[in-house]
């Protein structure tokens, strides 16, 4: 059950990211939904799953993006792995640690991504710190939101269903 969920999450993330990028480049540069999905998978399912998810998602993202295939994949592989490792080592069940994890992982990803590009293209690292920080913040926010939705969504749905049913009983 885990694998289809992960694949579905990654596919949705890719679809959303490409949709946002189609609407606004600026908005697309402020968030990386695929990275958020990878970090989420890493935190939720562990290092191996996070690593594999990062690899697959990054490769697909690279392939769709039209750049050098592998740079995003490698960056997301590393991020997914270490997020999974850190998630297993520390308690990241509350929003703040999760936010920090998303924030830090996003920065690390950006750093790896730019460093690899710089290495491959033989130039210095062109890291826009402000843009990286903004993206990390947005990713963190989106990430804890997703976690909240994922954790509380079923409960909220169940509660909503119970509330609806009670209203119907009161009418009759």
């Amino acid at each position: 059950m885990k694998t289809p969920i992960v694949i579905a999450a990654l596919a949705v993330a890719l679809l959303l990211q490409s949709t946002i990028a189609g609407m606004s480049f600026t908005a697309a540069s402020r968030v990386n939904l695929v990275l958020v999905a990878v970090i989420y998978v890493g935190l939720a399912y562990g290092a191996v799953t996070g690593m594999l998810a990062g690899c697959a998602a990054g490769l697909v993202q690279d392939a769709i993006a039209g750049g050098i295939v592998g740079i995003g994949g490698l960056s997301k592989t590393i991020v997914g792995f270490f997020v999974g490792v850190l998630g297993a080592q520390f308690i990241v069940s509350t929003p703040v640690p999760r936010f920090l994890m998303f924030f830090g992982a996003s920065l690390v990803h950006e750093l790896c991504f730019q460093a690899l590009y710089a290495l491959v293209e033989a130039h210095s690292i062109r890291l826009q710190i402000s843009g990286a920080l903004i993206q990390a913040l947005v990713n963190g926010a989106v990430g804890i939101t997703i976690f909240m939705l994922a954790e509380r969504g079923p409960e909220m749905m169940q509660r909503d269903n119970w509330r609806r049913s009670s209203t119907v009983r009161r009418r009759y």
Binding site: M51, L52, C55, L59, I68, V69, G70, I71, G73, L74, T77, I78, F81, L116, V120
Partner: peptide, 12 residues
Amino acid sequence: LLVIVVGQLFLI
């Protein structure tokens, strides 16, 4: 991890 990283390095 090593295999995947190395594989992607080759790919890059």
